[in-house]
Amino acid sequence: MHNPPDASGVRSQRTWLQKLLAFLKRYWFLYLLVLPGFVFMIVFNYGPMYGIQLAFKDYHANLGIWGSPWVGLEHFREMIADANFWRAAKNTLIINGYNIVFKTTFTIFLALMLNELRLKKVKSCVQTAAYLPYFLSWVIFAGLVQVFLEYPSSSGSSGGVINQVITFFGGEPINFLTRPDLFRAIVVISNIIKNAGYGTIVYLASMSTINPALYEAAKMDGSNRLQMMLHITIPAILPTIVILLILDLSSLFSANFDQIYNLYNNYVLSTGDVLSTYIYRISLGGGTSFELSTAINLVLQVLGLIVVLITNKFVSKLDIMGIF
């Protein structure tokens, strides 16, 4: 337990075997720490990965995945031949793009605000409240969104609370959920309300590690709180922001199915139909095709990987550690 660190001067005179032993003696514990995770990864993540070849195959259960005949790019051709696929791809990109931009910005803003909040009791109440919607499933949450946005019907109901407010101020009620032009905004805003509070946890955790001495010093220099936020807090959490952003980008092409599925309807397909709901609809009608869904997922994953690689490259130029 008390081996001193290597003195580098001695190193050059040792043989490679001695070097290796010394290296292992120094670092064996780190490799031990890696081992369990590595085993789990090889078994559970890499174990099934040979299944990806189904995207290029015509699957026959009796021949197994390896034995099934190759069909080349046929499933991909099938995929791109459908106009609705492209519309769904476009919507996915737009909705997720909005989601990432607005949700990330808002989450960071909220975390900063919470961090600035000085009344401790209020802070902890607000935090707790802000996490709550995360735990409501989309079935329920989307149901509530519909209740709040309901349009007044002829049966005397005055509509949801939003339309009540609009009519109170003399406006015309809006049938929100039948308006293709409003659908994406509804998706993004409801996503923020549901998930932003919960998203602040990681930011707050990373803010908690900022050395208070930094703030003390800044205060001595006469910085105000806004300046401290800009010059100390934000740079300190920048690595966290970047990493979460990259993780979000990795799912840029695979949208949140539950949310869209529970909110959308036929009125808003033109702006609201995303790839995951599209895949769901086609697989309901035509039986399940493992090959086609594997092919679509493969494309989405590869695209996600490309986006992340580009971002990562950009990020490492800024001297921030990316994900690779």
Partner: peptide, 12 residues
């Protein structure tokens, strides 16, 4: 358990 999974031919 690891060796067992490396036998995809088992399907047949």
């Amino acid at each position: 358990k690891q060796p067992a999974q490396s036998d995809p031919a088992g399907t047949t």
